[in-house]
């Protein structure tokens, strides 16, 4: 493609269109927002209105009390990801958006599993929990509650392992993510 700095005219055939990128992968967007009332509604409403689906969403404080961080995941196969981020940028209270590269990101989720555990299965359950570095946080005669932290994949793997024992209830926080290395997310 003709370098912008030369006087050569630019042949039109060479031009590539930009935009409307469907990446086909999951995206983790880390969004810094002003901690003001209604911000989350604005973000959620924007997604709904433009036909984008949010897969997971977490909100929490940052080290600056005026600023909160929203971490959300969307499926880049279903949505042109640049449209999502451009529309988000237009919200006045949104300060910064980062589309985190999976390879350069540490992401974690916390999940609580309530599993029925009456009788001989209990031991086996304990073993699985151990392997996943889970923690038993509550025990009754007929059930246990296990806490597991890790990537989404790990949590889903644990879920499929314990499901046959009788999964009574499961709760997940949704992902939070932080960029690797010294730079800020």
């Amino acid at each position: 493609m003709g370098e912008p700095a030369t006087k050569e005219p630019l042949s039109l055939e060479e031009l590539q269109a930009s935009g409307n990128l469907r990446t086909g992968r999951k995206h983790v967007l880390s969004i810094l927002v002003e901690n003001k009332s209604g911000v989350l509604t604005r973000i959620a409403g924007l997604f709904a209105r433009r036909g984008f689906n949010i897969d997971t969403l977490t909100v929490g404080p940052t080290d600056d009390e005026r600023i909160s961080r929203v971490t959300l995941t969307v499926d880049g196969a279903l949505h042109p990801i640049d449209q999502v981020t451009k529309q988000l940028h237009k919200l006045i209270n949104v300060l910064k958006i980062r589309d985190l590269e999976p390879a350069d990101t540490v992401s974690r989720e916390l999940a609580l599993f309530k599993i029925s555990a009456d009788g001989p299965q209990r031991g086996e359950l304990m073993q699985i929990t151990e392997i996943f570095r889970g923690k038993v946080v509550d025990v009754t005669k007929r059930s246990i509650i296990v806490e597991v932290t890790g990537t989404t994949e790990k949590i889903e793997a644990f879920e499929s392992m314990v499901r046959p024992f009788g999964l009574i209830e499961m709760m997940r926080t949704g992902e939070i993510a932080i960029a690797r290395g010294r730079g800020e997310t």
């Binding site: 003709g2 912008p4 050569e8 005219p9 630019l10 039109l12 031009l15 002003e34 919200l91 300060l95």
Partner: peptide, 26 residues
């Protein structure tokens, strides 16, 4: 004080030059 709101007004000079060149060959 609207840290999250800073519209871009100027336009990227390289892109503008690129546009001029495309127009010149159209």
């Amino acid at each position: 004080r609207l840290p999250g709101y800073q519209p871009t007004l100027e336009g990227n000079q390289k892109q503008i030059r690129q546009a001029a060149k495309a127009l010149a060959s159209a």
